[in-house]
Amino acid sequence: MNAPQSFNPDTWSVAGRTFTSRLIVGTGKYKSFEENAAAVEASGAEIVTVAVRRVNIADPNQPRLTDFIDPKKVTYLPNTAGCFTAEDAIRTLRLAREAGGWTLVKLEVLGEAKTLYPDMRETLRATETLVKEGFEPMVYCVDDPIAAKQLEEAGAVAIMPLGAPIGSGLGIQNRVTIRLIVEGANVPVLVDAGVGTASDAAVAMELGCDGVLMNTAIAEAKEPVLMARAMKAAVEAGRLAYLSGRMQKRRYADPSSPLAGLI
């Protein structure tokens, strides 16, 4: 492992684009656009996820997300949240590509409303079609190392396993499988979903993930902007800890002060 020195910035790349921040944040569930924009700023995120929805033709002059978070400064990552079939997801992303002109997208095909667990059969099918059409999909998926390899072989530009159900805030429930996915992947791996607080984000990064994607953990904090700062620090701390190579665990104590010279 090549631990970067202070003069060597620790960046990561997806689909040919290089980023410094390893935190991707969602833009849903905020009380206001202003709060959302302030949280994005505090998080240091260079990528935000966005949804594709009908414009309100009854009231076309409502404020827009793009008025508060500038797509020229922050990379918009359109998602397919709410899609339960490959067809719906593909249709949504075709519109997203036209709306924004971007081929870097987040694919998620859900299997059921209760758990929002991904439907991997539909997800794989959608990935294959999207890649054929020139998209660069970052793919939300189960924490299955085999499924992750299949997605990578199908052309996924990033693998994004859940750490716990979307919006649950339960933390990383599957450290072993996340680590196995990281070890086997040749594309970036990001934990997508399940983070509840800063230590969860640090855990994801300590497992060797290239990044973390979260929405609710920040948006539903009592002080979202403060939590965004916490998440920024946690992702950085977890990354540095991973690069540092942690000490081995021992079963019993080992004194930190020398025994020699004891009076």
């Binding site: 969602g26 833009t27 849903g28 569930k29 905020y30 656009f33 959302n36 996820t49 966005v50 949804a51 594709v52 929805r53 009908r54 414009v55 033709i57 827009r64 997300l65 793009t66 797509p71 918009y76 359109p78 998602n79 949240a81 075709r94 519109l95 997203a96 590509r97 036209e98 709306a99 924004g100 979307i166 919006g167 979260m214 929405n215 609710t216 948006a219």
Partner: peptide, 28 residues
């Protein structure tokens, strides 16, 4: 079928068409 933005001015609205007009909103 998505209409490329560059051709929106050339495509004529026909009787019975069904349109979806979308934009980006907040989402996770």
């Amino acid at each position: 079928a998505v209409i490329p933005r560059s051709t929106l001015g050339q495509v004529r609205v026909e009787d019975g068409d069904a349109y979806e007009i979308v934009h980006f909103v907040g989402g996770g």
